[in-house]
C-alpha cells in the first residue's frame, strides 16, 4: 500500500504512526464521552483496569480476543501485501468455527495430540474453502474480491444459524448451539487458571513465520512485487499475477478459518450464533494499524484486545456503553488510510 510498507527497508513498522493513531482514537473517545456527559476519567481508568490493570485483566481478558484478532489481522495483511483485499474474514472465521466444531464433536476418543491438530486443520480447510468462490470469480471473470468476499459473510452467518438449529444442534434440541466439543479437542490454557490459551502462541508463531517469508523468502518478495505493481511484476518479473492473487487469498481464507477454529477450541468449546463480535472487521483495523507488518500486527492485536477487554469493564464500572470503543476503531482506520494513501 504505502511505500514504506512495501519496502523491505521498513522492516520495523513505523511505531510512532501506529501508536499516534491509536492514542488519537483514544483521545477522541474521551472527548466524545465528555461531550455525551459521561465521566471520561473514570471511563479511562476502568478501560485500563479491564485491559492491563491486573494479571487477570491481561491474561484472561486482553490476550484472549487478541489471539483471533492477530490471526485475522495477519490474514488480511497477507492478502493486502499482494494487492488482494479479503473483506470476508468474518465469514471465513464462521466457517472455520463450523468445521472445527464438526470435527471437535467427532474426535472424542482421540489423543489431544491428534485431536487438536485435526480441529485446527478443519478450520484452515473450511476457511480456505469459503474463499474458493471469490477466487474463482476473480480469476475467471475478473470479479473484484472486495465485493464477493464481503457478501459471503452474510451467507456464512446464515450457515451458522442453520448448523446450530440443524445438524450441529445440541442433543436436547432446545438451544441454538452445538454440544460442547470433546475435551481432547480443546486447546490447553497456557497459565491456568487464566484463560489465555495455546491459540495465542500459534498466532504468534504464524506472525513470525510470515515475517520471515516476507523479508527473506522468494514467495514473500513475489507477493510484495505483485501488490506494489502488477504491471511491473508481469512485464519485468514475468510473474503470474493472477495466480499469486489466488494463492494469497486462499492462504488468507485459511488463516481466518484457523481463527474460527482456535476460538471454538480455545474459548467457546461450542458453536454459537454471533461467536465473533465482529473480529473479521476489527482485524482490518488491526492490520492497518500494524501497517501490514507482522510485528506491527502483533502490537495492534494486543491493543485492540485490550480495547475489547476494557470496554466490558468500562460498561460495568463507569456505565459507559461498550460499543463506544468502536470510535477508536473507526478513528484508527481513518488515520491509517490517510497516512498510507497513495501519493501522486
Amino acid at each position: 500500500m504505502n511505500t514504506t510498507v512495501v519496502s523491505r527497508r521498513a522492516a520495523v513498522p513505523d511505531l510512532v504512526l501506529t501508536l499516534g493513531a491509536f492514542l488519537l482514537g483514544l483521545a477522541l473517545l474521551l472527548a466524545f464521552l465528555s461531550v455525551a456527559g459521561f465521566d471520561a476519567a473514570a471511563g479511562l481508568a476502568a478501560l485500563w483496569r479491564g485491559a492491563f490493570g491486573s494479571r487477570y485483566a491481561l491474561l484472561s481478558a486482553t490476550l484472549v480476543p487478541a489471539a483471533p484478532l492477530l490471526l485475522l489481522g495477519l490474514a488480511f495483511a497477507l492478502a493486502a501485501r499482494a494487492g488482494a483485499l479479503n473483506i470476508g474474514m468474518e465469514g471465513q472465521f464462521a466457517m472455520g468455527a463450523i468445521g472445527a466444531t464438526w470435527v471437535g464433536l467427532a474426535v472424542g476418543g482421540w489423543s489431544p495430540l491428534l485431536a487438536i491438530p485435526a480441529v485446527l486443520a478443519a478450520g484452515l480447510v473450511a476457511g480456505a474453502a469459503w474463499i474458493v468462490v471469490p477466487v474463482v470469480l476473480r480469476w475467471r471473470f475478473g470479479v473484484t474480491e472486495v465485493i464477493s468476499t464481503l457478501l459471503l459473510n452474510f451467507v456464512a452467518e446464515a450457515a451458522v444459524s442453520w448448523a446450530v438449529t440443524g445438524p450441529l444442534q445440541e442433543a436436547s434440541r432446545s438451544y441454538p448451539q452445538s454440544d460442547p466439543i470433546a475435551m481432547s479437542a480443546r486447546l490447553p490454557r497456557l497459565l491456568p487458571p487464566d484463560r489465555v490459551h495455546l491459540g495465542f502462541v500459534v498466532a504468534l508463531a504464524i506472525a513470525a513465520v510470515l515475517w520471515v517469508i516476507l523479508a527473506r523468502h522468494r514467495l514473500g518478495f513475489v507477493w510484495r512485487a505483485v501488490g506494489a505493481s502488477p504491471r511491473a511484476a508481469t512485464v519485468t518479473g514475468r510473474l503470474p499475477v493472477e495466480r499469486v492473487a489466488a494463492t494469497v487469498l486462499l492462504l488468507s481464507g485459511a488463516l481466518a478459518g484457523l481463527g474460527g477454529a482456535i476460538e471454538v477450541s480455545g474459548v467457546s468449546a461450542a458453536l454459537y450464533q454471533n461467536l465473533s463480535p465482529g473480529y473479521g472487521f476489527t482485524a482490518i483495523a488491526v492490520a492497518l494499524l500494524g501497517r501490514l507488518h507482522p510485528a506491527g500486527i502483533v502490537v495492534a492485536a494486543i491493543l485492540f484486545g485490550a480495547l475489547q477487554a476494557g470496554a466490558g469493564a468500562m460498561q460495568r464500572d463507569a456505565g459507559i456503553p461498550a460499543v463506544a470503543v468502536h470510535v477508536v476503531q473507526a478513528v484508527v482506520i481513518l488515520v491509517m488510510l490517510l497516512a498510507t494513501r497513495r501519493r501522486g
Binding site: V6, S7, A225, A228, A232, A233, T234, R238
Partner: peptide, 20 residues
C-alpha cells in the same frame, strides 16, 4: 510502470527481474 517498481529499492528492482 513496467520496468521498475518505484517504491522498491534498486536492489529489489534487480531481484524483480530474476526472482521467478
Amino acid at each position: 510502470l513496467e520496468g521498475l517498481i518505484g517504491g522498491f529499492t534498486l536492489t529489489e528492482n534487480l531481484l524483480l527481474a530474476e526472482v521467478r
